[in-house]
């Protein structure tokens, strides 16, 4: 069971309170009808799937019911940090700090 810190509730909670919601920082196309097939493929289906640092969305469904973002290591499953939905993607420096 993972312990996840909800940045809205400001509390560490058990994984069963949350639902995973896929990779973070994938923007919806502003003009969908202008997209080529390759761009649609990238938006819908291609994900980074890294062995290492992953940016992802979680939904605190049994808590505040809000979406937030997280940085997690996909090998150790350790959460490096969580942050609110509209905050910018953490820099490599910030992630390196969180790993310490």
């Amino acid at each position: 069971m993972l312990l996840i810190r909800c940045p809205y509730c400001e509390a560490d909670r058990a994984e069963v309170e949350f639902t995973y919601a896929g990779e973070a920082h994938i923007d919806r196309p502003e003009d969908p009808s202008a997209l080529s097939d390759a761009e649609w493929e990238a938006f819908l289906f291609l994900r980074s799937n890294p062995r290492g640092t992953h940016f992802e969305r979680w939904y605190h469904i049994h808590g505040c019911a809000r979406y937030f973002n997280a940085v997690r290591d996909t090998v150790s499953d350790k959460f490096l940090m969580t942050y609110k939905a509209r905050e910018p993607r953490p820099t490599e420096l910030e992630i390196a700090d969180a790993k310490k």
């Binding site: 069971m1 993972l2 994984e15 069963v16 995973y20 992953h54 997690r72």
Partner: peptide
């Protein structure tokens, strides 16, 4: 399990 992982493990729940 619901999240991307290479851990070859998973939660007890």
């Amino acid at each position: 399990d619901q999240y991307v992982s290479y851990s070859q493990g998973g939660p007890l729940h």
